[in-house]
Nucleic acid binder design. Structure first.
Lengths: 111, 111
DNA sequence: CCAGACTATCGCATATCGACGATAATCAAT
DNA sequence: ATTGATTATCGTCGATATGCGATAGTCTGG
């Protein structure tokens, strides 16, 4: 995960001819891209998109991964904000955070 | 890098109600997303986009990273196909592969 | 309250990332 | 050929990702 302490980001200073977006933007893109930088997470995201209704552990059934592993990926997706989890009784329903997804699309499109 | 051997991807089989794109597509997205899943690489990509002219080791000057580290990131970007390197004398000019970039945008947009 | 189902978390192992310095490799020019 | 500049690669280190089984936590229903 790109969480290394970036020493300094001397971009967009006087010596640099770039009018690039802020570094914060770079980290935003990196963080969101990171969330979908694994096939399993792409599949999960697509699964959640395809089912307008939030799904829960059914995700596990769709994936060739152990439940704990899927849960781990869901955690990563939740941390990225792309996915939201909502407790529904003993189950947990996950759904796409459309705003975050739109933000990801927008950020990538504006590259 | 998500290069782990995926055991099997029983998606889109008879038991699954998904008409999702192929898993290959998931790996494509994951691979491209991975390339920009690091702030430094996002910055490099933007730098290459902003300068229509290909840049070379000037990238190093723009980044708070060691030359070897930048070279490593460039290698990753090259492997993803997002960036192309062209030897120009003792220097190496890098430039964006517009097609790959477009593919990335398209893939993300079609999520 | 207890049993059952569902999910999250904990360890653990392995593999890779990300960073760096040091070193090799490459090319132009002298 | 040698030098100088530029870039790639190597080796190392710490941190993290990824996978799993096992376990703990949580909630519902009887």
């Amino acid at each position: 995960m790109p969480k290394q302490a970036v020493k300094k980001m001397p971009c967009c200073d006087d010596t640099s001819p770039c009018s690039l977006p802020t570094d914060q933007s770079a980290e935003q893109i990196a963080a969101l891209a990171w969330a979908i930088a694994h096939p399993a997470r792409v599949r999960i995201v697509r699964l959640l998109i395809s089912r307008n209704t939030c799904v829960c552990g059914e995700i596990v059934d769709e994936m060739p991964l152990a439940q704990s592993t899927v849960s781990q990926h869901l955690k990563i997706l939740k941390e990225s904000g792309l996915v939201q989890g909502e407790v529904d009784g003993p189950k947990v329903c996950y759904c796409i955070n459309s705003e975050k997804l739109a933000a990801l699309k927008s950020l990538v499109a504006s590259l």
